[in-house]
Design a protein around this nucleic acid. Structure first.
Ligand SMILES: [Zn+2]
Ligand SMILES: [Zn+2]
Ligand SMILES: [Zn+2]
Ligand SMILES: [Zn+2]
Lengths: 181, 181
DNA sequence: AATGTAAATGATATAACATAACAAAATGAA
DNA sequence: TTCATTTTGTTATGTTATATCATTTACATT
């Protein structure tokens, strides 16, 4: 069993993040192979960069990182890689931050029909910046319940809850504390 | 009692929208007066323009409308008015669309402590473009439940459910049908 | 190996959304 | 009126994202 990082990064500020990266890349390779999709070196590298930490990363941050290692790189290069990764469910876009984060549930989707897209719900700490993908049965039930009563067919869910994680609440001072990126 | 528009615009494509606008502006005047805030002519006009319909409006759409009636208007003019209106809870920003919509619950907040800000949850029809602000006890309960269990203190909720409204599902063809803007 | 085809990437330009910084005007209180 | 504060105007720039077309790469077929 892996470390607790992926399950609860809020509670694991000092965890071995290399294993998060390895797990994410391995799962991505496997998922793409299974679906006949191509995780090219560029896409793989972008995914790796997204996984530098558990904080959402802006597209232009990724662009700068790529430029550091490859010289001239243009925005479409990054956006295309991100589009691919999002389509495969390997990365999610956080609408409220206009930023991207690695999927915290790679490899164990229950709602995955061939492609890897899935609804992703987040807790986002405004103090340390960490975002955690959550899964909650009551939340899912409430959503499908209200949609059903409204006759509304949900295609896409944006659920992002911002506030303070437990660790940051207990610090009282307002400085980054979940140092794991 | 008002028409059903504000409560369920999905179901009222041919409603008397003027009453929606009047109700929203009246409620805004009242709310600002109560709080000692100033609903200036510009802010009032921007709110009125946001209320042209039940579809989210982009800041630059509003800018163009203002320019039509006032000549040269710059982006900060619109964004400042929108900031004010959002702070007062009279308008909400839809993160997944980068657009704004009039608050569907003006005047009856139960969670309003002085200022008018409140969590706003939406159903957004991808066919007709209408967005409806919803309120659901089970959803609220699920959210506070999961936050409590995680020790997470929620400060802001972004909940936007996109898909097809009942009317558009029953049309099968993919063309705008909820013509009420 | 050569060819053809589709997918992926490179490159340029521009669109769309948003804010910083400072000046001028309007408002309301003293 | 005078003063302080808020609001609006103005200019410039920052940030995020896409359209378009050229080039390269991967890979199956001949
Ligand atoms: Zn980690
Ligand atoms: Zn995920
Ligand atoms: Zn209406
Ligand atoms: Zn509202």
């Amino acid at each position: 069993m892996a470390n607790q990082t992926v399950d609860n990064p809020f509670a694991a500020p000092g965890h071995d993040h290399r294993s998060c990266i390895v797990a994410a890349l391995d799962a991505a390779e496997a998922a793409c192979a299974r679906r006949g999709e191509r995780l090219t070196p560029l896409r793989r590298r972008v995914l790796e960069l997204v996984w530098r930490g558990h904080r959402p990363v802006g597209a232009y941050d990724l662009l700068a990182l790529l430029q550091d290692e490859r010289g001239r790189v243009a925005p479409p290069t990054v956006y295309r890689a991100l589009d691919f990764l999002c389509t495969q469910g390997l990365v999610h876009r956080l609408e409220s931050l206009q930023a991207f984060i690695g999927c915290g549930h790679t490899g164990n989707h229950m709602d995955d029909q061939g492609d890897g897209r899935h609804a992703a719900h987040f807790l986002i700490c405004q103090d340390c910046g960490v975002a955690v993908e959550i899964r909650d049965g009551q939340l899912d039930g409430a959503i499908s319940g209200l949609a059903g009563r409204a006759g509304f067919a949900i295609a896409d869910e944006t659920i992002e809850l911002s506030g303070l994680c437990a660790a940051c609440r207990n610090q009282s001072v307002s400085r980054p504390v979940c140092t794991t990126s």
